[in-house]
Design a protein around this nucleic acid. Structure first.
Lengths: 148, 148
DNA sequence: GCTACAAAACGGAATAATTCCGTTTTACAA
DNA sequence: TTGTAAAACGGAATTATTCCGTTTTGTAGC
């Protein structure tokens, strides 16, 4: 999903179109990687000093409900990125260090034959974690540190 | 992994073998499903009233490092279950309501051809979420409630 | 069995993430 | 231009998790 599509969702679904919401979508579009709520707050405060954390959390939650962003978590921290939907369904390689992703064109659900008995599927998650080339160099220098 | 295997790991790795750790492994073995730290604490306190939360968190973390339990999270809550390792590598259908799982004998990594360029894989996650038969009936009665 | 010591547990407090709520501001429809 | 419901505010409450100095305990060696 690109910036315009995301903004269109906000407009068309009848939610108020505020500068803060637009800015927040722009951040996700520009960064194009997984961000923690804290990172989002930090970038927002460059334009809106003193922005309430509640506003970020509320909008992250709204954006997730609207399918504008998608969330996951690793190393105990929740993260969000612009939703990739619209394009054919796919999954990601995720760099645990910088949050950047690479698309995988396989979905393991294709190998699942129909609905299993006595179980209703509501969703699935397939993610490959690791380090991209840039970040691997960094993590090697850090030795055994459990970097946050 | 069964109860005895889990206890053997604790003994053989040179960690102290305490009644609390044994009890905690028993709980995971008996429940055989994903449990939140709070649920674990609750069950532990039946035998050890006033047990420190720190003890539960410390041991959960240790058990995860030792491969005795495996963790994941959904709906914003961290959960742990007895590690299924030892058996051939596999993944799970997970009931979001009760935390019970069903094994899947497919692993999508088999379809990933070698290591992608410029990316070092350290792990992967494939989980299918939904509701088991028992819990689906419950969730239907609850209507639109976002049950916790 | 007894002792010494390091590891485990304690427990209260610190930290951090997230949510709540009453009030103020604002986008937008009429 | 105005009225109104939604959004944002912001401080406080809640909750999860970790920290740390102290006490207890498992276990190896005597």
């Amino acid at each position: 999903m690109n910036l315009q599509q995301a903004l269109d969702i906000l407009k068309s679904k009848g939610y108020k179109y505020t500068g803060k919401r637009e800015r927040m979508v722009q951040i996700f579009s520009r960064e194009d990687r997984y961000l923690t709520p804290k990172e989002v707050l930090g970038e927002m405060q460059e334009d809106y000093p003193g922005l309430s954390v509640d506003t970020v959390y509320r909008n992250l939650s709204l954006f997730e409900d609207l399918g504008i962003v998608e969330g996951t978590e690793w190393e105990g921290e929740r993260r969000y990125r612009l939703h990739c939907g619209g394009d054919p369904h796919h999954h990601h390689l995720i760099c645990k260090e910088c949050g950047r992703t690479r698309s995988l064109n396989v979905c393991p659900m294709n190998a699942i034959l129909g609905e299993p008995e006595d179980f209703t599927i509501t969703g699935h998650k397939f993610e490959i974690f690791g380090y991209c080339k840039d970040c691997e160099a960094v993590s090697k220098n850090e030795g055994n540190c459990t970097h946050s």
